[in-house]
């Protein structure tokens, strides 16, 4: 870790890990596609601070702008079957 950056304290790491675990278990257990996508949003929110914590901010910007596109592409097929 480079100098001039505060080390992320343990509580943020534990909370983002808890967010990832909650989102993963919820995504696997749900059966409705919309509920699965909402749970996937929780998981993506948990992954994002780990990328920023490493100092890879350009990667964080690119991933944060590309990740909703994946959800939008999935929603294109999601709206057809559901009345």
């Amino acid at each position: 870790m480079q100098e001039g950056s505060i080390a992320v304290n343990e509580m943020v790491t534990v909370s983002c890990g808890a967010l990832i675990v909650i989102g993963t278990i919820l995504t696997i257990k749900e059966s409705d596609p919309f509920r699965k996508l909402i749970s996937l949003g929780i998981m993506i929110g948990g992954v994002m601070p780990f990328i920023v914590d490493r100092g890879l901010l350009d990667v964080a910007i690119a991933v944060a702008l590309i990740a909703p596109l994946s959800t939008l592409f999935t929603l294109m097929i999601c709206g057809r079957g559901e009345p």
């Binding site: 993963t24 995504t27 699965k36 996508l37 996937l40 998981m43 992954v47 780990f50 991933v63 999935t74």
Partner: peptide, 25 residues
């Protein structure tokens, strides 16, 4: 197939996190 596609994204984010662990920008 839709559930399979959504579950595949979990695995994709796991691979991204695993790449982050080795600092491969």
């Amino acid at each position: 197939y839709l559930n399979r596609l959504i579950n595949l994204e979990i695995s994709s984010w796991g691979l991204l996190l695993l790449m982050l662990s080795y600092n491969e920008a």
